[in-house]
């Protein structure tokens, strides 16, 4: 049935691979899509999850539900994806200059053209909320690989800092520097598209 709650009962849960696609396909697909923002990639990750799940069936102890177990595998695949993606030698994220004055008397202050503008208060309206969501998704996809990885793993998956650093090969202070850049860039991108 695709329930996502981990049952607290003491039943032994079992696995039914024949029913995986029908019972859990959409749920896993949506989970993956919300983490990687690409239908193609999401499908790949779901497929990898099923394959890994079939290989790991013997180690399933029945203490969690089938869907919980599958999601934990999918989470792992998401992490692997971002680890691979962010290890690409890319131009460092200094491509994005932070929106603050670099020197002078106002060093560290907002550069006025890039400072936060007033946002309309309309997000209670479902139509505007949907628009906002699309803008957010677009802007997330525009983040440079490493910043996107940090944002998804730290903020969306809520993995603890040490583990994120282990996966992405950064120091804890690097992590926050990148998170800072990611959120500044995200905000700026959203504002540009949203206020158009």
């Amino acid at each position: 049935m695709g329930q996502s709650k981990d049952n607290q009962d003491s039943r032994q849960h079992s696995l039914n691979p024949d029913k995986w696609v029908d019972s859990h396909g959409d749920y896993l697909y949506n989970y993956a899509y919300s983490r990687v923002n690409s239908k193609e990639l999401a499908e790949d990750l779901v497929q990898e999850t099923f394959v890994a799940g079939l290989r790991a069936m013997k180690s399933f102890q029945g203490r969690s539900t089938e869907i919980t177990w599958l999601i934990s595998i999918l989470k792992r695949k998401v992490i692997d994806h971002y680890r691979k993606m962010s290890s690409n030698k890319e131009i460092t994220s200094s491509e994005f200059s932070r929106p603050f004055q670099k020197d002078g008397a106002s060093q560290g202050h907002w550069i006025m053209e890039r400072a936060p503008k007033e946002w309309p208060d309309e997000l209670d309206d479902p139509i505007h909320q949907k628009e906002f969501r699309l803008v957010l998704e677009k802007c997330l996809s525009h983040l440079p690989d490493k910043l996107k990885a940090v944002f998804v793993l730290k903020f969306i998956e809520e993995i603890n800092s040490d583990e994120v650093c282990k996966e992405l090969g950064c120091t804890p202070s690097n992590l926050w520097v990148m998170m800072h850049r990611a959120r500044l860039r995200l905000r700026e991108c959203i504002e540009l598209k949203w206020l158009k």
């Binding site: 695709g2 996502s4 696609v21 396909g25 959409d26 749920y27 697909y29 949506n30 989970y31 899509y33 919300s34 983490r35 239908k39 999401a42 499908e43 997000l123 909320q129 906002f132 969501r133 957010l136 998704e137 903020f155 969306i156």
Partner: peptide, 17 residues
């Protein structure tokens, strides 16, 4: 919005296979 995006609601899937 990110929280809402990452919370999967089986009654309102954003995408479907």
């Amino acid at each position: 919005e990110v929280t809402s995006m990452k919370t999967i609601d089986p009654d309102h899937y954003e995408v479907e296979l």
